[in-house]
Design a protein around this nucleic acid. Structure first.
Lengths: 336, 336
DNA sequence: GGCGCCTGAGAAAGCGCTTTCATAGAGGGG
DNA sequence: CCCCTCTATGAAAGCGCTTTCTCAGGCGCC
């Protein structure tokens, strides 16, 4: 059916072993022989069967990336980073949606082990380390943004606490004192870390932590939108630090509907720096996570691990990006 | 190293053939034997090596999706659609970035053929049919949004012409007469089709086509932003139909900077209905492409083709979504 | 001129499955 | 009671590569 290494060998008048050597640059082959083989390959349009090669070498040159949901706008840049680095190193990338569902995660990991992928990047996993290893066996793993209890896995993370600290300190420096926080889901480590940064900045400024100004949302616009209602009921505030850009956008929309202009009446800061922050009105002040760079780095670490290295984890700094949604508090009354 | 089918066979006291039959539900196996095998599988934590299976069956249960750039906000929903359907049908998805570069496209296709993927979904390809087939051999293909000269490939497309027609007719119905168009790259079919819809709507309304009101951009915010300058130099207009949402957002930003309020002074319509259209200010009137549904459908057609069917193409209708960026033309002067 | 060594290339096994073919044994019918 | 027909299972080949082992021949050296 397809042309095989035997066809090429026959055409070139050599053995399959020699064709293999030419193809892989392994072993020594006389120049004339090499040319004959290359001619045969070209003439037959031969493309080696990598499944067979993988079976023989037990290397698939395939990496996998598992994430909850690619429509979360933080992920595409990350995926691109992983993908491009993988491609540069001649790896191919499998993509999987887990929907943050532990059963699906586990099922996926089993499939990946079965497919003998060389390594896996895990983002937003909910599974614990024991079950991951149980499903995945020895396959090298890089984990994003989760201090997972996975022996041997390198972790790539962002300093969420530090980023949140920067955001809130920015608001404090503008003169805000009543700063609310629209948090992420309590059970995610990143939510907790950002909340921590918020508290730390308040503490550093000598301000008390006021739990009524912290409401939990779910990282969506709808969540941010809904959070504003609860916040307005809770008490006056002149600024909001939202745990991510999507909810910040929801917050801005809700404030606007209530006649609370941003940033004139209320300042808003987000987190992530998704692409569209620069194009909303007002443009959104936020904390940038270097998603693309993180993706590249994760892929790099993974390939290191695949090739026998023992890579250390990396922590990326988050960076404050000041745009149009923050300003000094209004002289007059505040919201709520 | 890893546990193989031989280990399972030994443990269960049967032959590998029987284990294979149990695993695949092929052939007849006595109930008692089946139970013994299943117990052995569970006890050893056996996960079949799918590379070996693929070599034996020449089926990999892997699909590939090639697209120019996943950070284009239109794509994530599409990817998700493909991915989820693939998963439901027990296929795994390979993702590739082509960057709209024909060389990379061709290289990728070769790799995919080598990896013996069962089928490929091609989005935004620049290669012609002959080279695609040359690189990919007989592998089944579904093409998105491009009437490609690829015999045997099913095509999933959106009625761009019809969608653009709806957008412009909406503007006409509001009373606009001077309607500009920020087009996409001339060499892409979708750009041309949307331009066509624009012209048709004008023609239907008995309005002349005025080339000076059509400027080419590149589907980015920056492109839309820059287009406004050229448009303002070209002549007065009270509405802009942008070829996609990203450029529409750039257009809105540029208009705002020139003091041309949207929609009070100028109305703007986009195309795609990316997620954030509902959260910009003003919210963006646009033409929705059902990206998720298209992804699912493409995957469905591909799997049909893989399993021996001969699927027909599908055309999705585009739908006008009226939001806040369009309104009747201002009584007074227009922009430009 | 003979010997050892090095280079280039082939033979064959093995990677972990599937699947065809063959066969032992269990029933059933005459 | 024998033969035939199924049913359940095993043996072995084959999928298309890689890689080890082996060997033929050419060369340099003494």
């Amino acid at each position: 059916m397809d042309v095989t290494i035997y066809d090429v060998a026959r055409q070139a008048g050599v053995s399959p072993a020699t064709v293999s050597r030419v193809l892989n640059g392994s072993g020594r082959v006389a120049a004339a022989t090499r040319r004959r083989v290359e001619a045969a390959v070209a003439q037959l349009g031969y493309e080696p069967n990598r499944v067979a090669r993988s079976l023989a070498t037990s290397v698939t040159h395939t990496l996998a990336l598992l994430l909850p949901d690619i429509t979360n706008p933080f992920f595409p840049a990350l995926v691109k980073g992983v993908q491009l680095l993988a491609e540069e190193r001649r790896y191919t990338l499998l993509l999987g949606h887990t929907g943050a569902d532990p059963e699906r995660e586990e099922a996926y990991l089993r499939v990946l082990r079965g497919k003998r992928v060389d390594g896996v990047i895990l983002v937003g996993l909910t599974l614990d380390g024991r079950r991951i290893r149980g499903a995945l066996g020895e396959v090298p793993v890089v984990v994003l943004d989760r201090p997972v209890d996975l022996p041997g896995a390198a972790v790539v993370r962002v300093d969420h606490r530090g980023g949140a600290f920067l955001a809130v300190r920015h608001l404090l420096e503008l003169g805000h004192r009543d700063i609310a926080h629209v948090a992420g889901p309590r059970d995610l480590a990143v939510s907790r870390e950002r909340l921590e940064g918020y508290r730390e900045a308040l503490a550093e400024a000598g301000l008390p932590y006021r739990p009524e100004l912290v409401v939990e949302a779910d990282f969506t616009e709808e969540g941010g939108y809904a959070a504003v209602r609860r916040l307005c009921a809770a008490g006056p505030f002149t600024a909001v630090f939202a745990a991510n850009d999507l909810s910040a956008i929801g917050v801005v929309a809700a404030l606007r509907e209530r006649g609370l202009a941003v940033p004139d009446r209320v300042s808003v800061v987000g987190f992530d720096d998704i692409h569209l922050c620069a194009y909303t009105v007002p443009t959104l002040t936020t904390v940038r996570q270097p998603a693309y760079a993180m993706g590249r780095r994760a892929a790099e670490l993974l390939i290191d691990a695949v090739q026998g290295g023992d890579p250390r984890g990396v922590v990326f700094a988050a960076e404050l990006v000041v745009r149009g949604s923050t300003g000094p508090p209004a002289g007059g009354g505040s919201a709520g």
